[in-house]
Design a protein around this nucleic acid. Structure first.
Length: 471
RNA sequence: CGGGGUGUAGCGCAGCUGGCUAGCGCACCUGCUUUGGGAGCAGGGAGUCGCCGGUUCGAGUCCGGCCACCCCGACCA
């Protein structure tokens, strides 16, 4: 893992059966095990999106060129990575169709028809979809040409309401990622240079991978009235005057799966947080010859039933052609949080061996206690994983006294660096040129200048910001 | 888009200065013995050597061209 991190990452993703390359450049196939992980993650987030009043809908994959072009900075931001459909059958199209890199444009044009009155607001809609961004450089899950995500698109009566929504969804993301994925994140604001193309303000949650590089785990944008004015999303307000709506958009993607791999993984492979793991417990029968085999399989089967009865996602690994040791290694590689071994000796003592993936510790649990003990342990593991990741972030967040020290820390330790910033694009760009580190965000908590100075310009800092090298 | 690398069985690879019927490990199939941390033996199936062209008695191997993918950078969720 430490020798060649990129290699480790790709190996884990492929050997754990999450995803594989295809014949199409930059695209991946998400395999059943990886897709099950995504589904669990997706469902957990979908519940939260609905609980905050949003409804799901589906908009077209294609965006006519004329629509995409309407918001100038938006098209400028996405132009280099848009894939186009220019022909249908044998006929060239009259107008090129972009395959959506994001849906602000197509949704904006639809919202213009839907919104007439202040009574139509707020409009709170989310879409689960695929998008295409033709990136030059791709990485499984972290940056693929096509990826899956959710994108929320909302309209509000006032700026304040839109801002409230932007921050509400950022908080939904923070809580979701920390609770379900056990990934600690720093919520913050992006600087102008890192802002979403067409947004007024972009908020984000930033995570730290275990190679000490940062990963943007989710974004929430206050779009202001930029798209409303372009697409004509207007409403008649209580005072009988016509106004443009205030919009937000927010999204997280299959990139989060890559985040799980890189935050929790180790040299044995994947470690999955119990709340989203496809299998929370894997039952491995230990059979010795034909004499005891039926008895062991029956006992193990009962364990499976009792765990499922207790609401645990349980897999029964009763493959006959593989030895237990092989299965142990395989399920550790695939990150199953708990392994339950049932063998002849265990049955005699009415117990099972329970092994935790996070520290590979084993102990004995009476068979009758399993339905209670396993869910409890899964909760403990979830908590321990988040705590361990928090400790890691804390241990790898640095403060520096000088630019020289900054450069040294970025080069040798990486991680987050808290430092002052004078708010100018010039010093931000200088740091990037010199060190490849970018301002990940101005943290929502603790972004005050605190009397710091900008490390490049030496001027008084406007904000305390978080620097890191990022994926 | 620049730099590097790789295309030979499902996967990972070897195959030298051209030479016989293209090989190894894993996986797969059959059988027996095994099974508490990656099983052993025996037998077996599986290949348009990325594609096109050239040189040659003869090309996986040499030459030219093309294509694809991966890795490293700049651009990005």
């Amino acid at each position: 893992m430490t020798e060649d991190y990129a290699r480790w990452y790709v190996d884990v993703v492929r050997k754990a059966d999450l995803a594989d390359y295809t014949t199409i450049k930059g695209c991946m196939v998400i395999k059943p095990y990886g897709y099950a992980l995504w589904e669990n993650l997706r469902d957990a987030l979908d519940r939260r999106i609905k609980a905050t009043g949003h409804l799901n809908a589906y908009f077209p994959l294609f965006v006519p060129e004329s629509l995409l072009k309407m918001e100038a900075s938006h098209v400028e931001g996405f132009a280099p990575e848009v894939a186009w459909v220019t022909q249908a059958g044998q006929e060239p199209l009259e107008e090129r169709l972009a395959i959506r890199p994001t849906s602000e444009a197509i949704i904006g044009s639809v919202y213009a028809k839907w919104v007439q009155s202040y009574r139509d607001l707020p409009l709170l809609i989310n879409q689960w979809a695929n998008v295409v961004r033709w990136e030059k450089r791709t990485r499984l899950f972290l940056r693929t040409s096509e990826f899956l995500w959710q994108e929320g698109h909302t309209c509000h009566r006032t700026y304040e309401e839109a801002q409230e929504e932007t921050l509400r969804m950022l908080e939904v993301y923070r809580e979701f990622v920390e609770t379900e994925l056990a990934i600690p994140v720093i919520p913050g604001v992006k600087t102008a240079s890192e802002r979403f193309a067409g947004a007024m303000e972009t908020y984000c949650i930033e995570a730290l991978m275990n190679d000490c590089q940062a990963l943007q785990a989710g974004t929430s944008h206050n779009l202001g009235q930029n798209f409303a004015k372009v697409f004509g999303i207007k409403f008649l307000d209580v005072d009988n005057t016509e106004k443009f709506v205030w919009q937000t958009s927010w999204g997280v993607s299959t990139r989060l799966v890559g985040g799980i791999v890189m935050v929790h993984g180790d040299d044995f492979g994947l470690k999955l947080p119990p709340r989203v793991a496809p299998y929370q417990a894997v039952v491995v029968p230990i059979t010795f010859g034909e004499a005891t085999k039926p008895m062991v399989l029956e006992a193990a089967g009962k364990v499976v039933d009792s765990l499922r009865g207790a609401g645990v996602r349980t897999h029964f690994d009763n493959r006959d052609n593989l030895k237990p040791g092989f299965k142990f290694n395989e399920w550790e590689l695939k990150g199953a949080p708990l392994r339950v071994e049932v063998g002849p000796k265990d049955i005699e003592k009415k117990q099972a061996v329970v092994a935790r993936r996070i520290d590979r510790r084993k102990d004995f649990v009476p068979l009758d206690d399993l339905p209670k003990a396993v869910p409890t342990r899964l909760d403990e593991i979830q908590t321990e994983m988040l705590e361990a990741a928090r400790r890691f972030v804390r241990a790898n967040t640095h403060r520096v006294q000088s630019y020289e020290e900054f450069k040294q820390v970025i080069e040798e330790k990486k991680g987050f660096i808290e430092a002052g910033w004078d708010g100018t694009p010039e010093s931000e760009a200088q740091v990037k040129d010199d060190t490849k580190a970018t301002i990940r965000c101005i943290p929502l908590q603790g972004g005050e200048p605190d009397g710091l100075i900008d490390l490049v310009s030496g001027k008084p800092a406007k904000h305390k910001v978080l620097f890191a090298r990022a994926y």
